[in-house]
Amino acid sequence: MLIALNKPYGVLCQFTDEQGRPTLADYVKQPGVYAAGRLDHDSEGLLLLTDDGRLQHRLADPRHKQPKTYLVQVDGAITDEALAALRRGVPLNDGPTLPAQAVHATEPEWLWPRDPPVRFRRNIPTSWLTLTLREGRNRQVRRMTAAVGFPTLRLIRVRIGEHALDGLAPGHVRVLAR
């Protein structure tokens, strides 16, 4: 079984939490499935879950280089130079990243409001980009945008390989395969 979840902001990518915070168990009712990869609690969007260990490994293991695409809102008006740096690869404290696909984007009409909302500062603009990676380091997108001078404000994964959000509402699940 392969399931897509649009993970809401603030939900942990695990099924239990001793502190009572929201988890996958609040949204996914199918027994015996596990997340194929992670999204941090402050990130939103597509999370794939499966009961097939080999499929989980293929989807999550960076050695298989499944492209993952993110819609990213950043602090400031992102420059062409910053996008070019992301495309070349960015030096991080754990080594340089692989080159990424990075393009300007606009806030899509289909995007849901975040709760809580992203902070608004009248004198500092925000901008959007689409970023596609083929590796999966801890908080990589956030570290990459910060490294080029544009900290991430909102991060939404919209695609993993051939699987996309495709209108799936936050907190909702879609069975992709049995």
Results as ranks from 00 to 15, higher is better:
residue 175 V to R: 03
residue 56 Q to F: 01
residue 161 G to Q: 10
residue 116 P to Q: 05
residue 128 W to E: 08
residue 95 G to N: 13
residue 94 D to S: 10
residue 41 H to C: 01
residue 81 E to P: 01
residue 97 T to E: 01
residue 130 T to R: 15
residue 73 Q to N: 13
residue 122 R to D: 11
residue 97 T to H: 04
residue 13 C to R: 06
residue 71 L to A: 08
residue 129 L to Q: 13
residue 99 P to A: 10
residue 47 L to Y: 02
residue 27 Y to T: 06
residue 101 Q to R: 15
residue 142 R to P: 09
residue 28 V to H: 03
residue 84 A to T: 12
residue 66 Q to H: 13
residue 108 P to S: 12
residue 48 L to K: 12
residue 43 S to V: 02
residue 19 Q to W: 00
residue 88 R to D: 09
residue 177 A to M: 09
residue 151 P to F: 02
residue 105 A to N: 10
residue 82 A to P: 08
residue 21 R to T: 12
residue 153 L to F: 01
residue 137 R to F: 03
residue 174 R to V: 07
residue 132 T to M: 14
residue 98 L to A: 14
residue 89 G to D: 12
residue 159 R to G: 03
residue 156 I to R: 05
residue 11 V to S: 12
residue 84 A to D: 13
residue 16 T to G: 02
residue 58 R to V: 03
residue 115 D to W: 00
residue 125 P to V: 07
residue 150 F to E: 02
residue 113 P to N: 00
residue 69 T to E: 13
residue 28 V to R: 06
residue 22 P to V: 11
residue 163 H to I: 09
residue 44 E to D: 05
residue 124 I to H: 12
residue 15 F to C: 10
residue 27 Y to V: 07
residue 22 P to L: 13
residue 88 R to Y: 00
residue 155 L to C: 04
residue 150 F to V: 02
residue 116 P to F: 01
residue 58 R to S: 06
residue 49 L to Y: 09
residue 114 R to T: 02
residue 62 P to R: 14
residue 78 I to Q: 02
residue 93 N to E: 15
residue 108 P to W: 11
residue 140 Q to A: 04
residue 34 Y to A: 14
residue 29 K to A: 14
residue 142 R to I: 06
residue 146 A to K: 15
residue 77 A to P: 00
residue 164 A to L: 01
residue 66 Q to E: 15
residue 114 R to S: 07
residue 118 V to C: 03
residue 121 R to F: 14
residue 130 T to W: 08
residue 159 R to M: 05
residue 141 V to Q: 06
residue 58 R to P: 00
residue 45 G to S: 00
residue 17 D to W: 08
residue 19 Q to D: 09
residue 18 E to Y: 00
residue 12 L to A: 06
residue 24 L to V: 07
residue 142 R to F: 06
residue 144 M to D: 13
residue 2 L to T: 00
residue 52 D to T: 09
residue 127 S to F: 01
residue 152 T to N: 06
residue 158 V to D: 02
residue 166 D to W: 00
residue 22 P to R: 11
residue 92 L to V: 06
residue 37 G to Q: 04
residue 131 L to W: 11
residue 29 K to T: 14
residue 152 T to G: 06
residue 62 P to D: 13
residue 144 M to T: 13
residue 147 A to F: 04
residue 67 P to R: 11
residue 58 R to A: 11
residue 1 M to S: 14
residue 173 V to T: 12
residue 109 E to Y: 01
residue 47 L to E: 04
residue 104 H to I: 00
residue 10 G to C: 06
residue 79 T to N: 07
residue 95 G to P: 06
residue 81 E to Y: 01
residue 53 G to D: 14
residue 57 H to V: 00
residue 131 L to T: 14
residue 95 G to T: 08
residue 117 P to G: 05
residue 81 E to M: 07
residue 107 E to F: 02
residue 134 R to M: 15
residue 149 G to M: 05
residue 85 A to N: 11
residue 15 F to H: 11
residue 91 P to Y: 07
residue 51 D to A: 14
residue 125 P to R: 04
residue 145 T to D: 10
residue 80 D to A: 15
residue 119 R to M: 10
residue 87 R to C: 09
residue 40 D to C: 05
residue 90 V to I: 04
residue 91 P to L: 08
residue 119 R to V: 12
residue 79 T to V: 02
residue 147 A to N: 07
residue 151 P to D: 03
residue 85 A to T: 14
residue 87 R to H: 05
residue 69 T to S: 14
residue 134 R to E: 15
residue 151 P to W: 02
residue 51 D to R: 04
residue 71 L to T: 08
residue 26 D to I: 12
residue 36 A to F: 04
residue 64 H to E: 14
residue 135 E to G: 11
residue 25 A to D: 12
residue 18 E to G: 15
residue 52 D to G: 08
